[in-house]
């Protein structure tokens, strides 16, 4: 026991000094578990997130937009891969993590339980959803776990193009004809509050935050990240003539913060509990791909076993 306490002390000292924890270092079981949960949830979000946007690859209205969207959705697959890779350094098995996703035991970001209903949604997702993700990920790039932090640095670098292409897309629509303008405003109206909820519940209701912050898995609270995102985004919306769907929105000169109306967290909890518009569809789609891919994976594994030159032994 004394040994355990000593290790914990050393571990916490290391984190306090701003050093990174690496896979083989001693770590409290709770730290490992929280990290696996968080990183896997993040990875699941990337691969489930491929679906709502992937829907529009075949319908993108120009060759340029088509290539950009395809490259972006591909990146998301790549980001899922980096993140599973980081979770695996903690001893988790990707197979178990994906099973947990398919069986509903693990979550993914709620935002992907909403449908993409028009081409403008693609721009709005790039601008808002990826914009919010970048705010969160920039913080995570400084987290205490080495592999997670390194994956985040890589992801942040790549995501900058996601947000820019989104904003470019949105601003072209916002300056387009009446139909385009209406399309993009409608998309903003549907995604605005959902994006704000991506940062999670208010601090006073966020049960995990204290532990996560002590060990620098998280470095800022939900509300402070949300506020940063709001302050960044609102001027961008105004610059291209879009209206934020919030009647209570006002700028506070003293704090220099944009103050928003009340977020309807009942909706968030409802969707988290499985009752969003797309929860069942998304998981059913992932399941279908996995089931249909079974024979392919088995064939590849068998080929490797038959072909020792390829070094396919377990």
């Amino acid at each position: 026991m004394i040994n355990e306490e000593l290790e914990l002390q050393k571990f916490e000292q290391k984190i306090a000094n701003g050093e990174k924890i690496e896979p083989k270092d001693w770590m409290p079981e709770k730290y490992r578990k929280q990290l696996i949960r968080m990183i896997a949830q993040h990875a699941h979000s990337e691969i489930v997130g491929m679906l709502p946007e992937g829907n529009w690859i075949t319908r993108a209205p120009s060759l340029r937009r088509k290539m950009v969207l395809l490259a972006k959705v591909q990146d998301e697959g790549g980001h899922g891969l980096y993140l599973y890779s980081a979770a695996e350094t903690l001893g988790a098995d990707r197979k178990d993590l994906i099973e947990a996703l398919l069986n509903g035991k693990m979550k993914y970001s709620n935002i992907f339980n909403y449908p993409t209903l028009s081409w403008a949604d693609i721009g709005i997702i790039g601008w808002l959803v990826d914009g919010a993700a970048i705010v969160n990920q920039t913080m995570l790039a400084k987290c205490s776990y080495g592999p997670y932090s390194r994956a985040m640095i890589r992801i942040c670098k790549e995501e900058n193009f996601h947000k820019r292409q989104g904003y470019e897309n949105v601003s072209v629509l916002a300056q387009g004809n009446a139909k385009q303008k209406q399309m993009v405003q409608d998309a903003l109206n549907r995604w605005w509050w959902q994006t704000l909820m991506m940062f999670g519940p208010h601090d006073e209701n966020s049960t995990n935050t204290v532990d996560l912050m002590r060990w620098k898995i998280k470095l800022e609270t939900n509300d402070s990240l949300r506020q940063r995102f709001i302050n960044l985004t609102i001027p961008q919306a105004y610059a291209i003539g879009l209206t934020i769907p919030d009647n209570d929105l006002k700028y506070n000169e003293k704090t220099q913060n944009w103050e928003i109306g009340k977020i309807n967290f009942d909706e968030l909890y409802n969707v988290i509990n499985g009752n969003g518009p797309c929860n069942r569809i998304r998981i059913a789609e992932r399941k279908k791909s996995y089931e249909e891919g079974n024979w392919v994976r088995i064939a590849a594994e068998n080929y490797a076993l038959k072909n020792k030159n390829n070094y396919g032994t377990k």
Binding site: I98, E99, N103, N294, R297, A300, G312
Partner: peptide, 13 residues
């Protein structure tokens, strides 16, 4: 609900 078992995710490199 039936459990979804994944046969293999191949090897890690």
């Amino acid at each position: 609900m039936a459990q979804n078992k994944i046969d293999t995710e191949l090897y890690l490199w």
